[in-house]
């Protein structure tokens, strides 16, 4: 059974430990600006929303890559960026309609969530259970995908 990140904004307190854990796991830095998961702060309503790649079935990033640098990880189902293949052209960053592929100035490559190979550090770090790693059918991912399909799917 494939697993996915389940994000529950109503449980998020905005502590940003997920961002710290992500940047440390992937870049060996405690630097939220290098995190692949982001917590958005809705100042007006005092709400927070953790947000990262849903590993969507359409894989806009993968299909737009000119050099086959984004591949599906057979074990996790994640869409992984192969750093040694990525040339840094950034086409995937504009193709992903969810805005979850970002360019990293330091490496000259793009980066996105790869589920940490099956042990997402963000989920382990979240103290309130707003980010959990669960069986895919519990995530509401199907609704996301249906939404994406409805809105965008027939363009490709």
């Amino acid at each position: 059974m494939l697993r996915a990140l389940k994000l529950e904004p109503e449980k998020c307190t905005g502590c940003l430990q997920c961002e710290m854990a992500c940047s440390y796991e992937n870049e060996q830095l405690f630097n939220p600006s290098k995190s692949r998961i982001k917590v958005f702060n809705f100042h007006d309503s005092g709400r927070f929303a953790p947000y990262t790649c849903t590993q969507c079935a359409e894989a806009w990033c993968l299909h737009s890559c000119p050099v086959e640098a984004i591949v599906i990880n057979a074990k996790t189902g994640a869409k992984d960026v192969l750093e040694e293949v990525c040339v840094g052209c950034k086409v995937c960053t504009i193709a992903c309609p969810f805005g979850t592929v970002n360019y990293n100035h330091d490496t000259g490559k793009v980066q996105k969530c790869d589920l940490c190979g099956g042990q997402p550090a963000c989920a382990e770090a979240c103290p309130t259970g707003a980010i959990t790693y669960v069986d895919i059918d519990q995530t509401g991912l199907d609704r996301m995908r249906a939404h994406a399909q409805r809105s965008l799917g027939a363009s490709a």
Binding site: W60, T93, I94, P97, F98, G99, T100, Y103, L152
Partner: peptide
């Protein structure tokens, strides 16, 4: 702007 720039496409294409 390099962070989350793809949402501009997302918002446009989902109208």
């Amino acid at each position: 702007l390099t962070e989350h720039v793809g949402v501009l496409r997302g918002l446009i294409q989902t109208r």
